[in-house]
Protein backbone atom coordinates (compact mmCIF):
# COMPACT_ATOMS: atom_id res chain seq x y z
CA UNK A 1 0.00 0.00 0.00
CA UNK A 2 2.69 2.51 1.02
CA UNK A 3 4.70 1.39 -2.00
CA UNK A 4 1.75 2.31 -4.25
CA UNK A 5 1.71 5.88 -2.95
CA UNK A 6 5.43 6.32 -3.52
CA UNK A 7 5.20 4.90 -7.03
CA UNK A 8 2.28 7.15 -7.98
CA UNK A 9 4.05 10.24 -6.66
CA UNK A 10 7.29 9.28 -8.42
CA UNK A 11 5.55 8.69 -11.72
CA UNK A 12 3.09 11.57 -11.75
CA UNK A 13 4.45 14.36 -9.54
CA UNK A 14 5.11 16.60 -12.53
CA UNK A 15 1.57 16.11 -13.90
CA UNK A 16 0.10 16.91 -10.48
CA UNK A 17 2.35 19.93 -10.11
CA UNK A 18 2.05 21.72 -13.48
CA UNK A 19 -0.25 19.57 -15.58
CA UNK A 20 0.89 18.97 -19.17
CA UNK A 21 2.48 22.40 -19.26
CA UNK A 22 5.19 22.40 -21.93
CA UNK A 23 3.00 20.37 -24.28
CA UNK A 24 -0.40 21.62 -23.20
CA UNK A 25 -2.15 24.11 -20.95
CA UNK A 26 -0.74 24.83 -17.52
CA UNK A 27 -2.55 22.70 -14.95
CA UNK A 28 -2.20 20.92 -11.67
CA UNK A 29 -1.31 22.54 -8.37
CA UNK A 30 0.29 25.56 -10.10
CA UNK A 31 -2.93 26.34 -11.91
CA UNK A 32 -5.00 25.91 -8.74
CA UNK A 33 -2.79 28.43 -6.96
CA UNK A 34 -2.74 30.90 -9.87
CA UNK A 35 -6.51 30.66 -10.27
CA UNK A 36 -7.21 31.27 -6.59
CA UNK A 37 -4.62 34.07 -6.32
CA UNK A 38 -6.07 35.86 -9.36
CA UNK A 39 -9.61 35.30 -8.10
CA UNK A 40 -8.85 36.81 -4.71
CA UNK A 41 -6.86 39.68 -6.29
CA UNK A 42 -9.85 40.65 -8.44
CA UNK A 43 -12.48 39.82 -5.83
CA UNK A 44 -10.90 42.21 -3.32
CA UNK A 45 -11.53 45.52 -5.19
CA UNK A 46 -14.87 44.18 -6.43
CA UNK A 47 -15.93 43.42 -2.87
CA UNK A 48 -15.03 46.94 -1.69
CA UNK A 49 -17.09 48.47 -4.50
CA UNK A 50 -19.97 46.11 -3.71
CA UNK A 51 -19.84 46.96 -0.01
CA UNK A 52 -19.84 50.69 -0.81
CA UNK A 53 -22.78 50.16 -3.14
CA UNK A 54 -24.68 48.29 -0.42
CA UNK A 55 -24.05 51.12 2.05
CA UNK A 56 -24.89 53.75 -0.54
CA UNK A 57 -27.78 56.13 -0.03
CA UNK A 58 -28.89 55.64 -3.65
CA UNK A 59 -31.39 52.85 -4.05
CA UNK A 60 -30.34 52.05 -7.64
CA UNK A 61 -26.92 51.03 -6.29
CA UNK A 62 -28.13 49.46 -3.06
CA UNK A 63 -30.96 47.23 -4.29
CA UNK A 64 -29.25 45.34 -7.12
CA UNK A 65 -26.19 44.67 -4.95
CA UNK A 66 -28.32 43.43 -2.06
CA UNK A 67 -30.17 41.17 -4.48
CA UNK A 68 -26.88 39.89 -5.93
CA UNK A 69 -25.51 39.12 -2.47
CA UNK A 70 -28.67 37.22 -1.52
CA UNK A 71 -28.67 35.27 -4.76
CA UNK A 72 -25.03 34.25 -4.36
CA UNK A 73 -25.71 33.25 -0.76
CA UNK A 74 -28.76 31.19 -1.68
CA UNK A 75 -27.63 29.47 -4.86
CA UNK A 76 -24.96 26.74 -5.03
CA UNK A 77 -21.64 27.76 -6.55
CA UNK A 78 -22.10 24.91 -9.02
CA UNK A 79 -25.24 26.57 -10.38
CA UNK A 80 -23.34 29.85 -10.74
CA UNK A 81 -20.56 28.07 -12.63
CA UNK A 82 -23.10 26.52 -15.00
CA UNK A 83 -24.63 29.96 -15.58
CA UNK A 84 -21.28 31.56 -16.43
CA UNK A 85 -20.31 28.57 -18.57
CA UNK A 86 -23.47 29.16 -20.58
CA UNK A 87 -23.78 32.95 -20.56
CA UNK A 88 -20.19 34.21 -21.03
CA UNK A 89 -19.54 32.53 -24.43
CA UNK A 90 -23.03 33.62 -25.49
CA UNK A 91 -22.40 37.30 -24.72
CA UNK A 92 -18.82 37.52 -25.93
CA UNK A 93 -19.40 35.29 -28.93
CA UNK A 94 -15.94 33.82 -28.42
CA UNK A 95 -14.61 30.47 -27.32
CA UNK A 96 -13.74 31.42 -23.76
CA UNK A 97 -11.34 29.03 -21.97
CA UNK A 98 -12.82 27.34 -18.91
CA UNK A 99 -10.07 28.87 -16.78
CA UNK A 100 -11.44 32.38 -17.47
CA UNK A 101 -15.01 31.27 -16.86
CA UNK A 102 -14.03 29.82 -13.52
CA UNK A 103 -12.13 33.01 -12.70
CA UNK A 104 -15.15 35.21 -13.42
CA UNK A 105 -17.43 32.93 -11.37
CA UNK A 106 -15.08 32.94 -8.42
CA UNK A 107 -14.69 36.74 -8.54
CA UNK A 108 -18.48 37.18 -8.43
CA UNK A 109 -18.99 34.55 -5.74
CA UNK A 110 -16.12 35.48 -3.44
CA UNK A 111 -16.69 39.19 -4.15
CA UNK A 112 -20.22 38.86 -2.81
CA UNK A 113 -19.04 37.02 0.30
CA UNK A 114 -16.12 39.38 0.92
CA UNK A 115 -18.40 42.37 0.46
CA UNK A 116 -20.34 41.21 3.51
CA UNK A 117 -17.08 41.09 5.45
CA UNK A 118 -16.11 44.58 4.25
CA UNK A 119 -19.56 45.91 5.04
CA UNK A 120 -19.44 44.43 8.55
CA UNK A 121 -15.98 45.96 8.99
CA UNK A 122 -17.21 49.41 7.93
CA UNK A 123 -20.39 49.23 10.00
CA UNK A 124 -18.52 48.02 13.09
CA UNK A 125 -16.31 51.15 13.02
CA UNK A 126 -19.33 53.18 13.99
CA UNK A 127 -20.77 56.39 12.64
CA UNK A 128 -18.43 58.53 14.74
CA UNK A 129 -15.41 57.97 12.48
CA UNK A 130 -17.32 59.16 9.47
CA UNK A 131 -18.76 62.16 11.30
CA UNK A 132 -15.32 63.14 12.59
CA UNK A 133 -13.77 62.84 9.12
CA UNK A 134 -16.55 64.92 7.61
CA UNK A 135 -16.17 67.51 10.35
CA UNK A 136 -12.47 67.76 9.47
CA UNK A 137 -13.45 68.69 5.92
CA UNK A 138 -13.17 65.31 4.13
CA UNK A 139 -15.76 64.61 1.46
CA UNK A 140 -17.54 61.22 1.47
CA UNK A 141 -15.09 59.53 -0.89
CA UNK A 142 -12.05 61.05 0.75
CA UNK A 143 -13.29 60.07 4.22
CA UNK A 144 -13.80 56.50 2.98
CA UNK A 145 -10.40 56.46 1.32
CA UNK A 146 -8.30 57.92 4.13
CA UNK A 147 -10.22 57.18 7.33
CA UNK A 148 -12.78 54.38 7.09
CA UNK A 149 -11.32 51.82 4.69
CA UNK A 150 -7.76 51.74 6.11
CA UNK A 151 -9.18 50.83 9.52
CA UNK A 152 -11.84 48.46 8.24
CA UNK A 153 -9.50 46.63 5.86
CA UNK A 154 -6.77 46.17 8.44
CA UNK A 155 -9.19 44.30 10.67
CA UNK A 156 -10.20 42.21 7.69
CA UNK A 157 -6.79 40.71 6.89
CA UNK A 158 -7.50 37.38 8.64
CA UNK A 159 -10.85 37.08 6.87
CA UNK A 160 -9.05 37.74 3.61
CA UNK A 161 -6.66 34.86 4.21
CA UNK A 162 -9.46 32.49 5.13
CA UNK A 163 -11.34 33.59 2.02
CA UNK A 164 -8.22 32.63 0.09
CA UNK A 165 -8.44 29.17 1.67
CA UNK A 166 -12.08 28.79 0.70
CA UNK A 167 -11.25 30.03 -2.81
CA UNK A 168 -8.68 27.26 -3.13
CA UNK A 169 -11.34 24.79 -2.04
CA UNK A 170 -13.84 26.36 -4.47
CA UNK A 171 -11.50 25.92 -7.44
CA UNK A 172 -12.10 22.16 -7.17
CA UNK A 173 -15.58 22.76 -8.59
CA UNK A 174 -13.91 23.78 -11.85
CA UNK A 175 -13.67 20.01 -12.34
CA UNK A 176 -17.28 20.14 -13.58
CA UNK A 177 -16.36 22.41 -16.52
CA UNK A 178 -12.92 20.79 -17.03
CA UNK A 179 -10.69 23.52 -15.67
CA UNK A 180 -7.22 21.92 -15.70
CA UNK A 181 -6.51 22.23 -11.98
CA UNK A 182 -5.16 19.85 -9.35
CA UNK A 183 -8.39 17.84 -9.07
CA UNK A 184 -8.50 17.50 -12.84
CA UNK A 185 -4.88 16.30 -12.90
CA UNK A 186 -5.63 13.74 -10.20
CA UNK A 187 -8.59 12.37 -12.10
CA UNK A 188 -6.35 12.16 -15.21
CA UNK A 189 -3.87 10.12 -13.19
CA UNK A 190 -6.75 7.98 -11.96
CA UNK A 191 -7.92 7.40 -15.53
CA UNK A 192 -4.44 6.28 -16.56
CA UNK A 193 -3.96 3.92 -13.63
CA UNK A 194 -7.57 2.69 -13.29
CA UNK A 195 -6.68 0.27 -10.49
CA UNK A 196 -5.72 2.54 -7.61
CA UNK A 197 -8.41 5.19 -7.19
CA UNK A 198 -8.16 5.23 -3.40
CA UNK A 199 -4.42 5.95 -3.45
CA UNK A 200 -4.75 8.71 -6.07
CA UNK A 201 -7.60 10.54 -4.34
CA UNK A 202 -5.97 10.18 -0.93
CA UNK A 203 -2.84 11.87 -2.32
CA UNK A 204 -5.10 14.61 -3.70
CA UNK A 205 -6.77 15.07 -0.31
CA UNK A 206 -3.40 15.19 1.46
CA UNK A 207 -2.05 17.87 -0.91
CA UNK A 208 -5.13 20.04 -0.37
CA UNK A 209 -4.91 19.43 3.36
CA UNK A 210 -1.30 20.60 3.59
CA UNK A 211 -2.04 23.67 1.46
CA UNK A 212 -5.16 24.79 3.30
CA UNK A 213 -3.91 23.86 6.74
CA UNK A 214 -0.79 25.98 6.42
CA UNK A 215 -2.77 28.96 5.13
CA UNK A 216 -5.28 28.61 7.97
CA UNK A 217 -2.34 28.50 10.37
CA UNK A 218 -1.02 31.78 8.92
CA UNK A 219 -4.51 33.33 9.15
CA UNK A 220 -4.83 32.39 12.80
CA UNK A 221 -1.45 33.79 13.80
CA UNK A 222 -2.09 37.04 11.90
CA UNK A 223 -5.47 37.27 13.60
CA UNK A 224 -3.90 36.85 17.02
CA UNK A 225 -1.31 39.52 16.25
CA UNK A 226 -4.00 41.97 15.09
CA UNK A 227 -6.14 41.28 18.15
CA UNK A 228 -3.11 41.93 20.35
CA UNK A 229 -2.28 45.18 18.57
CA UNK A 230 -5.87 46.38 18.81
CA UNK A 231 -5.99 45.53 22.50
CA UNK A 232 -3.19 48.07 23.07
CA UNK A 233 0.06 47.76 25.05
CA UNK A 234 -1.69 47.45 28.42
CA UNK A 235 -3.46 44.26 27.42
CA UNK A 236 -0.61 42.99 25.26
CA UNK A 237 -0.29 39.81 27.26
CA UNK A 238 -3.85 38.66 26.78
CA UNK A 239 -3.98 34.92 26.33
CA UNK A 240 -4.62 33.85 22.77
CA UNK A 241 -7.88 32.23 23.83
CA UNK A 242 -9.36 35.60 24.74
CA UNK A 243 -8.97 36.94 21.21
CA UNK A 244 -12.40 37.00 19.59
CA UNK A 245 -12.60 34.75 16.59
CA UNK A 246 -13.97 37.07 13.98
CA UNK A 247 -12.81 35.13 10.99
CA UNK A 248 -15.77 34.51 8.74
CA UNK A 249 -15.41 31.52 6.49
CA UNK A 250 -17.61 30.27 3.77
CA UNK A 251 -17.20 26.56 3.80
CA UNK A 252 -16.90 24.36 0.80
Amino acid sequence: MIQDFITIIQDYWLLLLIGQYPNGPLGGLANTLILSALAIAFAFPVSILMALARLSKWWFLRWPMTALVYVTRGVPLLMLILWCYFVIPLWTGADVPSFLIMLVTLVIYQGAFLSEVVRAGIVSLGQGQMDAARALGHGYMSAMRFVILPQALYNMIPSMISTFVSTIKDTTLGYVINVPDLTFAASQVNNQLLTQPFQVFLILAVVYYILCWSLTFVANSVERRIARRRAGPRNARLPAEAAPLKTITEQL
Partner: peptide, 17 residues
Protein backbone atom coordinates in the same frame (compact mmCIF):
# COMPACT_ATOMS: atom_id res chain seq x y z
CA UNK B 1 -9.24 17.12 8.03
CA UNK B 2 -12.82 17.87 7.12
CA UNK B 3 -12.37 21.63 7.15
CA UNK B 4 -9.15 21.74 5.14
CA UNK B 5 -9.95 19.28 2.37
CA UNK B 6 -12.46 20.47 -0.26
CA UNK B 7 -15.85 18.77 0.10
CA UNK B 8 -15.69 17.71 -3.54
CA UNK B 9 -12.41 15.85 -2.95
CA UNK B 10 -13.89 14.18 0.12
CA UNK B 11 -16.87 12.99 -1.93
CA UNK B 12 -14.56 11.70 -4.68
CA UNK B 13 -12.42 9.89 -2.13
CA UNK B 14 -15.54 8.21 -0.75
CA UNK B 15 -17.15 7.27 -4.00
CA UNK B 16 -14.19 6.52 -6.26
CA UNK B 17 -11.75 5.44 -3.54
Amino acid sequence: YHRNVPTLVQLMLWYFG
